[in-house]
Simulated scan of single mutants.
Amino acid sequence: MVLIIITGGQVTPEIETPHSATILDVKRGIEERLNVEVKRQTLWLDEIMLQDEDRVGNYFPQRYGVLRLSVTPWPGDPKCIIWVRNKNEHLGFVRIRETVMVADLRSKIERRWGILSGVTMFHLDTEMIDDRPLSAYYITDNSVVEIKIEIETR
C-alpha cells in the first residue's frame, strides 16, 4: 500500500492505494473525497504530468508519496450551488462561481441569512481564509460549507 498526499490547494487529503492501482484509480479516490470530477483533475509528480493508465508503483515503490493536483475550471466560469450548514443543520444554498474569493462567499452568506459578522467557514474540516479563491479549497458544484457563528455577548 502507498499513502499518497495530495497537495495543490489549501486542503491536503491523503489517499491510500495499492502499488498496482492506476493514476485513474487515485483520481477516482480524489473525486470521492473532494467532489472534483476526474475529467477536471491533472496530477503532477514534480514537473511530470501523470497519465491515467500509469501505475502508482512506477512512481512510488516506497510506502508514501506526494502528488500535486491541479483542477481545470469549468468553461465560461458558471455559477455552482454551494450548500451551507451550521452544526449539521442545513440552512440552504447559495449560487456562486467557484473562482471567486472566500470573502465573496462569506458576504453572500451573511446577507442571505442576515448575519452581521462573526462567521467562520470550513470545507472538508479546513478553515477557509478570506483572501483565497474558493477553488483553493476544492469548492465545486454541490460542495458543503459549514459555518460557525460567533455571537458576542454584551
Rank of each mutant, 00 (worst) to 15 (best):
R63G: 12
I82M: 06
Y59D: 00
T72V: 03
I109Q: 04
W83V: 05
R95D: 09
N58I: 00
G76S: 07
T72I: 05
Q62V: 09
P73A: 14
P73I: 07
V66A: 06
G76Q: 09
V66P: 05
V94N: 03
G65M: 05
K79Y: 05
R112H: 13
K79E: 15
G114S: 08
R111Q: 13
K79W: 00
G114H: 01
M101Y: 12
F93M: 01
Y64E: 09
I115Q: 07
I96H: 08
Y64T: 13
G65W: 03
F60G: 10
E89N: 11
R112L: 09
R55H: 07
I81Q: 14
L69F: 02
R55M: 10
V102W: 03
L69D: 01
I109Y: 06
L67W: 10
K108C: 04
I96A: 04
D54I: 00
T72F: 02
K79P: 11
H90A: 04
G114Q: 07
G92K: 09
R106G: 02
D104Q: 12
R55Y: 12
S107Q: 15
W113I: 14
C80H: 01
V71H: 06
D104Y: 02
Y59S: 06
R85N: 12
T99C: 06
S107E: 13
F60D: 03
P78T: 00
R112V: 08
F60M: 09
E89M: 09
I81K: 14
R95S: 09
N86Q: 13
D54G: 06
I81S: 14
F93V: 08
N88Y: 10
V71I: 04
L69A: 04
L91F: 08
M101T: 05
R106A: 15
M101N: 08
E89G: 00
I82F: 03
V71S: 07
W113D: 11
K108T: 11
G57W: 05
M101V: 04
Y59F: 14
I96S: 10
R97G: 15
V56A: 07
I82W: 00
R55P: 01
W74R: 09
V94P: 07
L67I: 08
D77F: 07
I81M: 12
F93K: 08
C80W: 00
E89F: 03
P75I: 13
Y59Q: 02
L69E: 02
M101P: 00
